[in-house]
Computed example of a mutant assay.
Amino acid sequence: MFPERELKDLIISAIIIDVIYGYPSVSKMIIALLPIGLGFIFHELMHREVARKFGAISEFRAWYEGLIIGLILKMILGVKFIAPGAVYIYKDYLTVEESGKIALAGPLANILLAILFFLLTLAPEEYLFKIGSTGFDINLFLAGFNLLPIPPFDGEKVIRWNPLIWAIFGIPLLAYVFLRLF
C-alpha cells in the first residue's frame, strides 16, 4: 500500500512538524505528536487517494530543504515555518473539478479529525482533554490555512473549481485561523 520512500517521507515529515510545533517544550511535543501526525498524514493521504480515484498516479514526497529551514527558523528565531512537502500527482490531464476535489479532500480530512479530537475533550481524563483540545485546534488550523485561496494552497484550486464550496468551508475556517493568530 505504501512505497517505502513515501512511508519514510510521511513519518519523518510528521516528526519534524511536531518538533517545529512544540519546540522547546518536550511535553508540548508529546501531547501534539498524535494530533499533528494524524492531521498531517491523513490530509496528505486524502489528496493521494482522491487523485487515484480520478486515475492519477500520486505519492507524497517530503521537501527536506523546507523541513530543515523550518527547524532552523524555529530553533534560532522561534518562528514556525512548516513546508513539509506535497502529494505529487501525475496524469495527462486533470479537470478543474478533479483538481478542486483533490484539493478539498485534505482539509475535509482535517475537519473530520477535528470533530473526533473534540470528542476527546469530553473525557474526564486531563491528558485526553489536552490531546483532544490540541488535536481540535491543530486540525482546524491545518484545514483553514490550507484553504487560503492563493497558490500553492488547496484553497486556490477549490475556489477555481467552485467558489460556493470554498466559501462554505474556507470562510469559517479562515476566520478561525485569523482569530487564533490574534
Score class of each variant (00 low, 15 high):
3 P>D: 10
4 E>Y: 10
5 R>I: 08
6 E>N: 06
6 E>I: 02
6 E>D: 03
7 L>K: 14
8 K>S: 14
11 I>L: 12
12 I>T: 06
14 A>R: 01
14 A>Q: 03
15 I>Y: 05
15 I>T: 05
17 I>E: 03
18 D>K: 06
19 V>A: 00
19 V>E: 02
28 K>N: 12
28 K>L: 11
29 M>E: 00
30 I>E: 02
36 I>N: 01
39 G>P: 07
39 G>H: 13
42 F>P: 00
42 F>H: 07
45 L>G: 07
46 M>V: 10
46 M>Q: 09
47 H>V: 10
49 E>L: 13
49 E>W: 10
49 E>I: 14
50 V>P: 15
50 V>I: 14
51 A>H: 04
52 R>I: 09
52 R>S: 03
56 A>H: 10
56 A>I: 12
58 S>N: 05
60 F>D: 11
61 R>Q: 14
61 R>D: 15
66 G>R: 03
69 I>C: 01
70 G>F: 06
73 L>R: 08
73 L>P: 04
75 M>W: 01
76 I>S: 05
77 L>G: 14
77 L>F: 05
77 L>V: 12
78 G>N: 08
79 V>E: 00
79 V>S: 04
80 K>V: 15
82 I>W: 15
83 A>H: 02
90 Y>D: 11
93 Y>F: 14
100 G>H: 10
100 G>E: 10
101 K>I: 15
102 I>Q: 03
102 I>M: 14
102 I>R: 04
105 A>V: 08
107 P>H: 07
108 L>R: 10
108 L>Q: 08
109 A>W: 12
109 A>G: 08
112 L>V: 09
112 L>M: 09
114 A>Y: 08
116 L>G: 06
116 L>V: 04
118 F>G: 11
118 F>N: 10
119 L>R: 04
120 L>I: 03
121 T>C: 08
122 L>F: 10
122 L>Q: 09
123 A>M: 12
124 P>D: 11
127 Y>W: 15
127 Y>N: 14
130 K>V: 09
130 K>H: 13
131 I>H: 00
133 S>K: 07
134 T>V: 08
134 T>F: 00
136 F>W: 09
137 D>Y: 13
139 N>E: 12
139 N>T: 06
141 F>H: 08
141 F>R: 09
143 A>C: 03
149 P>G: 12
149 P>A: 13
152 P>D: 03
153 F>M: 06
154 D>G: 03
156 E>S: 12
157 K>P: 01
157 K>R: 15
158 V>W: 01
158 V>K: 00
159 I>C: 00
160 R>I: 07
160 R>N: 07
163 P>V: 07
164 L>Y: 04
164 L>N: 09
165 I>S: 06
167 A>C: 09
169 F>R: 06
169 F>A: 14
170 G>F: 00
170 G>C: 00
175 A>L: 15
175 A>S: 15
175 A>P: 09
176 Y>I: 13
180 R>A: 13
180 R>F: 13
181 L>K: 06
